[in-house]
Structures are given as C-alpha cells and as structure tokens.
Design a protein around this nucleic acid. Structure first.
Length: 115
DNA sequence: ACTTTGACTATAA
DNA sequence: GTTATAGCCAAAG
C-alpha cells in the first residue's frame, strides 16, 4: 500500500510538488523535474499532469507552464482559454498564452521544499 | 521486452 | 526574432 505522500513514484512526487505551488505563482516543468531529483525529465512532469485531472487532491496544473512562461498545456484543460482564465483569477496576467512578468511570478520549488 | 509517445529544453540555422 | 532538429527521461501500448 502506498501513502498519500508516496514520493517513491515519479507521478506522486510531481503531484506533491505542484500542490505546493502558492497561489499567484507559476513554475516550469524543468524546475519540478529537477526538484524531485530527475533533472531533464521535464516531459514526464507534463505526462504526470495528464493524469492529474483524475486524481485528488486536485493538482493546480494551471500554475505549471514551460520555461518560456507559455501555457503549453492549455489544450489539456478541457477548453481553450480555461488555463489562462484560472491564472487570471489568481492575479496572474496572461497575454497571448504567455505569463506576463514570468520571471517575477516564477516559484522555485528547490528553494521552498528544502526549508 | 521493444517501440512509441509526450502539457519539455537546449542548441543550431 | 522564429523555426527546425536533437537530446532527454519515464511511462503506456
């Protein structure tokens, strides 16, 4: 049996980390992958997010964008523009599928999870 | 067990 | 500045 915080699995590790992203902040796939110890597995983060739609607690995948600050996973949110809408509700300004002032809103997991 | 995929990233042109 | 190609890892088929 596995616990809720089963970080032994790649997916669970990604979910746990994404859930730690504070509201109004964003991060990129590479940072998450590196934070869980699998630097370079940025694609796997996105793959895990694809399953994240069916798991609980709900994973704020809308706070995860690519290194360019582009909402690459917008199409996976059920409807186009849904991800942008969620980000705007948190105070994040989005323009042309891109997060404005991404560098300022960027949340580094490695800096927060260590404590 | 092998091949293909995939919400990425980095480098080259 | 954009567009194309390669590299990368782990899971699904």
């Amino acid at each position: 049996m596995k616990s809720a915080a089963d970080q032994n699995n790649f997916f669970e590790a990604v979910y746990a980390l994404v859930r730690l992203i504070p509201q109004g902040r964003v991060t990129n796939y590479g940072a998450i992958a590196a934070a869980i110890g699998s630097k370079g597995a940025s694609r796997m983060v996105g793959w895990a997010m694809n399953h994240a739609h069916n798991i609980l607690p709900e994973v704020p995948a809308h706070r995860v964008v690519n290194r360019n600050g582009i909402l690459t996973g917008q199409a996976h949110f059920g409807a186009p523009g849904r991800m942008q809408e969620l980000l705007e509700q948190e105070g994040i300004e989005v323009k042309d599928n891109r997060v404005i002032r991404f560098a300022d809103l960027f949340w580094d997991p490695q800096k927060e999870i260590k404590i």
